[in-house]
Simulated assay, not measured.
Amino acid sequence: MQPRNTTKDLRADLARMTAPDPANTLVSQSKTLRAAWADLMRGFRQHELWLQLGWQDIKQRYRRSVLGPLWITIATGVMALALGLLYSVLFKIPVAEFLPHVTVGLVIWGFISGCIKEGANIFIDNEGLIKQLPSALSVHVYRLVWRQTLFLAHNLVIWVILILVFPRNLGWNLALAIPAMALLIINGVWVTMFFGIVATRYRDVAPLLEALVQLLFYVTPIVWMTSTLHDQGGEIANRARLAELNPLYHYMEVIRAPLIGASLPAYHWWVVIGCTIGGLFLALMAMRQWRFRVSYWV
């Protein structure tokens, strides 16, 4: 049996997957919100392409590695254990309560920060594919979000271990984690698309986002709890309410609360849904205005 020419086969697959759809040619070339939405839909229909490319990214990154992506899981687990044990002593919170809070927060944060920081360079890093393949611009966005979703799935292994070590009565509320994850992934799409376009046009945006993500890590309740500040009362409790002005706090809560068996007020869902709709509209506006210019900017 002759060995497969993988490079030739991959190119043939890419050509087949990215073949233009004549029915959408006119609408995709217009400068309207409908055309921007059509790009998102066309890219989603090319799922064979971005699924394959995303999986190839992971295999390439961990080539010749024994554990592969599990290295990310190990690193996240070690960090969660160290921060959980340290801050549980500083804040005088039981480890069984605080460690799951920190762990799930770090897992979710890995996805959010990955979409923001890597999303800023998504089109720059894929310059060759953008110029050579007639695929939808959103294909590269789905590729990154798919890769980050795989990392998120790997890191959830840590949560499973914690639930076994510190048993909790999760109940039916655990099912709420599914729509919460879906909302998180949808937000990953618009965040990657918006910052990808803006950072491609203005190259100073990427390092700025690096610093901003670092700042957001400290002001988002990941290694601290809002309940700890509220318990102190007085002026500190009033300042703790400022955390609710941070949208990432609500994203954390809608996923973390079902996974650790905590109560979840309904207003968190409304904030996340509102931010999702607003973010999608913002990304569509950016696509409508600038998506044709991305190939010239990279």
Rank of each mutant, 00 (worst) to 15 (best):
G54L: 01
T73E: 10
W55P: 04
I58P: 04
W109K: 09
I116C: 04
G54V: 03
Q132C: 00
N121H: 05
S65R: 12
F111A: 07
R64Q: 12
L81I: 13
S65E: 04
L83G: 00
G77Y: 05
T76R: 08
V95S: 05
E97Q: 14
A80L: 02
A80F: 04
W55F: 13
L85S: 12
L83F: 14
S65P: 04
G128R: 09
F91A: 11
L53G: 03
W109I: 03
W71H: 10
L129A: 15
D125T: 14
V104D: 03
A120P: 06
A120C: 15
I116M: 08
I130D: 01
I108T: 05
C115W: 03
W109E: 03
L86S: 14
C115V: 12
G84H: 02
G105P: 04
I58V: 15
L67F: 15
P69I: 14
F98N: 05
G77F: 05
H101V: 01
L83S: 07
W109T: 08
E97T: 15
I122D: 06
L81G: 13
A96W: 03
F98Q: 06
I122K: 05
H101S: 10
H101P: 00
V104N: 03
F91S: 01
A82F: 15
I108L: 15
S65W: 06
E127W: 00
E118K: 13
G119Q: 00
L129T: 11
V78Y: 01
L70G: 02
S65V: 08
L70D: 08
I116N: 02
L90R: 05
I130M: 12
I130P: 01
E118G: 09
F111T: 08
W71N: 08
K92G: 03
N121Y: 00
V104I: 15
V95R: 10
T73S: 13
L85R: 11
L81D: 01
G68C: 08
G110Y: 03
L106Q: 06
I58F: 07
L70H: 09
L106A: 02
F111S: 05
G128K: 08
G84E: 06
L70N: 11
R63Y: 07
N121D: 09
L85Q: 10
V89E: 11
Q60H: 13
T76Y: 12
N121R: 06
W55L: 13
T103A: 15
A96C: 00
F98C: 00
L85A: 14
A75V: 14
P69M: 10
V89I: 11
G54P: 05
L67G: 11
I72L: 14
P94T: 10
E127N: 11
G105H: 01
I108M: 13
V95M: 13
I93C: 07
L90N: 08
N121C: 01
P94N: 13
D57G: 07
E127Y: 04
A96S: 14
Q60I: 12
R64P: 02
I112S: 00
V66H: 10
L129G: 05
